[in-house]
Design a protein around this nucleic acid. Structure first.
Lengths: 249, 249
DNA sequence: AAGTGGTCTAGACCACTAT
DNA sequence: TAGTGGTCTAGACCACTTT
């Protein structure tokens, strides 16, 4: 449980990372308490025998992790953990696609239809223009887990509907294999309860809590090309995060 | 809509940031497409007249933002946007506390009771040991917005229950004013529907969709000191995030 | 005036990849 | 072997805060 006190140049971890961990350990063990000032960068240079740039890089890492804050001309201070900077991610979604053997994407429906109000608004087209509706369900170990409903702009230049399906292939979307052909997307996570249709598809009861992840994807001209939503049973998904000095020593 | 092509040394933005934005603009406008290799670092040095460390710092920023990936010995490549690395945060929670005039924390109840199974498990104490239950509601513009229910370990060394209340003052928790006295916390977001009690407090109907943010906080010895949950109406909170090249040019 | 963080240089050496 | 990313040095200058 002792704290590392010097930098080992032959270690596999680079010097800046070792220094990050040393400082984090010190903070985690209460050597520096919230509000305390860390030793100045020049002192850290001498103490650990590294150059200013290396110390700077370590401090920047602590800044990014929300562990310290800096005041130019004054010093680097230990922050009290606060929920303001906490971030959550979609790692659990990501894992659904990890091994292809256990996961299967089933296409429920593909059809060409006309944009209603909501679709027209999000895809910035006129009501009644043609769109493509795709309904898919992601099956994990035979268990329907994620229901996806997506509206795509109908592009007559594309050779076929099959080509449209490639635009946001579910797998490419999450694994980033370079298959997805959009430039950026906006996402929204909402709390919801399952409708009858959604509950049937996800093999559970209506009115159960669920997450609804809405997305709009844009092409390289910043025009929307797709919008839709993922529905996931609330009992199959939790978002986790930690704050302050978690993991490590 | 033109892309910046050189670094202005007298600009307020530092060189490395200007280079980040130049590269992001190029990627955003399709100059470099997903899968393409960026110019090598040494070429970027010459092209923009900056030192290797400055280029490196810019590349690292793009790496952190999930926009490129690097392969040692090979090059830096533009990534296709994928949902795997998307993060969202609690900024909306944070804003609730921004101006104290509009926000008020009302304490509904404080009482000393005995740990039940769930509480004993999370606080790592025995069933029946004393704990403190605090129920609070955060009122925004007269509108009950956030319901917090928290179980604290009863510490006979603290002078009073009032002192316990300071341990995780709601305001300090979100704004990070250094009032909170814990070292780290684990958080979980779940989809839920409001119970009768929660709906009454939040001034709406039961069975409405809601977010439940559960937390466990730990002291400097890594012992749990508090667990509880925030409940928020689903129609009052959405988590947003973006993927790929959002904002900017 | 002295100390602090923030940026930057112009090299160096290493590990790795491609040819 | 040549090129690429990854780390690091030993200084420098600036803006800012503290005393």
């Amino acid at each position: 449980m002792n704290i590392q006190t010097k930098i080992y140049r032959q270690a596999s971890d680079p010097a800046y990372l070792q220094l990050v961990n040393i400082l984090k350990s010190n903070i985690g063990q209460g050597v520096y308490l919230p509000g305390d000032r860390l030793p100045s960068e020049s002192k850290l240079c001498k103490q650990y025998g590294v150059s200013p740039m290396t110390v700077r890089r370590s401090i920047n890492a602590l800044l990014d992790q929300g562990i310290v804050s800096t005041v130019q001309g004054s010093g680097t201070y230990v922050k009290a953990p606060d929920l303001g900077g906490v971030t959550f991610n979609l790692d659990q979604f990501h894992e659904l696609f990890r091994d292809k053997e256990r996961t299967r994407v089933k296409i429920l429906e593909v059809l060409i239809n006309r944009a209603d109000d909501a679709t027209a608004k999000r895809l910035k087209i006129r009501v009644g223009e043609r769109t493509i509706l795709i309904r898919r369900v992601l099956v994990r170990d035979g268990d329907p887990t994620l229901y996806h409903r997506e509206h795509l702009i109908y592009d007559p230049h594309l050779p076929s509907v099959e080509a449209e399906l490639e635009v946001t292939s579910l797998h490419g979307l999450f694994v980033g294999t370079g298959e997805s052909k959009f430039k950026r997307g906006d996402l929204e996570i909402k709390a919801a309860v399952l409708s009858k249709e959604e509950a049937d598809i996800l093999n559970t009861m209506p009115m159960q809590p669920a997450f609804r992840l809405e997305h709009v994807f844009y092409d390289f001209n910043d025009n929307p090309v797709s919008w839709g939503r993922f529905i996931c049973r609330g009992d199959r998904l939790t978002f986790t995060a930690s704050v302050g000095l978690s993991g490590l020593k």
